[in-house]
């Protein structure tokens, strides 16, 4: 007892002195900076930050850029406009993305998490490397409507960005590589791996009997495409939405007629938060999604063979599957203040 009191008395002024020290601020900043840590049992990521090490100033710059409409042509739309943290960085209640001037995009805004493990990005896999992804929305007339060159020019002329870029990369200069690498430090460290499912798999929490039944059903009917632990095999498939696809999907990128109407299998992590669903956001609820897989599959030449006969579920099984899908929600991820819009 005596000893611990003594230690406490010593520690109090010591910790006050530590917080005052400049290197303590650096320590606090480092703690506020996520690093890409591979959760137990996960594969190696595709994007590993080897050429773009995450630093406190680099991450802070990426975070600020993510939430700053300066990247759009008219300064009206930021990445964070359509990627909302409370929706696991999807766009709640919006079937398709909304760009500058109120124009509608063509596809549903996907959630952003575990992107470092995605071999390709976008619904059709048109982006082959995480750093280059922002070039697509920045230059898409239906999204941010500008260009990479314009965004760099605006950042160079800004009152504070040149200083933030210098701090992040160790020398003066604003260019597209630094812009894209800073954004990757933010988007690439958005890791969601702390759901009830994860805790249950680690033995730290227990599934309810209903959730466990849902896990069994999931593994029987869904896991061939939505493969654990990332809940996607990152393949492109036609899941039977239309007899004649209205969006050519993967075929636009590959040029193969056999890829008509194929889209990337999305991860189901945080799926309860990312409504509406499908590449065009046509379904508002997971109930509608299950209706589709049980009774709505449309046959077409490119329909995925695994879905040729749909999925059969009774009412109790549907409830169990939905309970399991709810267990994939990662509350600590959507409340992680490091990923929230900065207030400075």
């Amino acid at each position: 007892m005596k000893r611990s009191t003594l230690l406490g008395l010593l520690a109090l002024p010591l910790s006050a002195a530590l917080i005052a020290a400049p290197w303590a601020h650096a320590l606090i900043a480092a703690r506020a900076t996520p690093q890409l840590q591979v959760p137990h049992g996960w594969p190696a990521p595709h994007y590993n930050f080897a050429a773009n090490p995450v630093t406190p100033a680099g991450f802070a710059l990426g975070r600020r850029l993510f939430y700053d409409p300066i990247l759009s042509r008219d300064g009206s739309v930021s990445c964070g406009n359509c990627h909302q943290q409370f929706a696991a960085f999807a766009h709640l209640d919006h079937r398709v993305s909304h760009g500058i001037g109120g124009v509608n995009g063509k596809r549903n805004t996907p959630g952003l998490f575990n992107l470092a493990w995605q071999p390709e990005l976008m619904w059709d896999g048109s982006v082959h490397q995480l750093e280059l992804q922002p070039v697509a929305p920045i230059s898409n007339p239906l999204e941010m409507g500008g260009s990479l060159a314009l965004a760099v020019d605006k950042l160079r002329g800004d009152a504070s960005y040149p200083r933030l870029f210098a701090a992040a990369f160790g020398s003066p200069g604003v260019d597209s590589q630094r812009l894209l690498r800073a954004l990757a430090q933010f988007t690439g460290t958005l890791v969601s791996a702390d759901s009830h499912y994860d805790r249950a798999m680690q033995g730290r929490e227990a599934f309810t009997p209903q959730e466990h039944a849902g896990l069994d059903l999931f593994r029987e009917h869904c896991a061939a495409c939505h493969r654990e632990p990332l809940f996607s095999d990152f393949s492109y498939r036609n899941n039977g939405l239309d007899a004649a696809p209205r969006d050519a999907g993967r075929a636009l990128v590959s040029g193969h007629p056999g890829d008509q109407g194929l889209f990337r299998v999305p991860s189901l992590r945080n799926v309860a938060l990312t409504a509406p669903y499908m590449h065009d956001g046509r379904y508002d609820s997971l109930q509608q999604v299950l209706d589709h897989y049980t009774s709505g599959i449309q046959s077409s030449p490119t329909l995925d063979p695994l879905l040729a006969n749909g999925i059969t579920l009774n009412a109790g099984q549907r409830r169990a599957l939905l309970a399991f899908l709810d267990s994939l929600t990662d509350d600590s991820f959507i409340h992680d203040r490091r990923f929230a819009q900065p207030h400075d």
């Binding site: 050429a51 773009n52 048109s126 982006v127 082959h128 490397q129 995480l130 750093e131 280059l132 070039v135 697509a136 230059s139 898409n140 260009s147 990479l148 060159a149 760099v152 260019d175 597209s176 590589q177 812009l179 894209l180 690498r181 990757a184 636009l252 990128v253």
Partner: peptide
């Protein structure tokens, strides 16, 4: 071509870069 954001003559801001099928 698949190595991520580049600089100099390979800066994608030079406009010699596809965004709908990156490269």
């Amino acid at each position: 071509n698949g190595a991520g954001a580049q600089t100099g003559t390979l800066d994608p801001a030079r406009g010699m870069f596809w965004t709908w099928n990156t490269g």
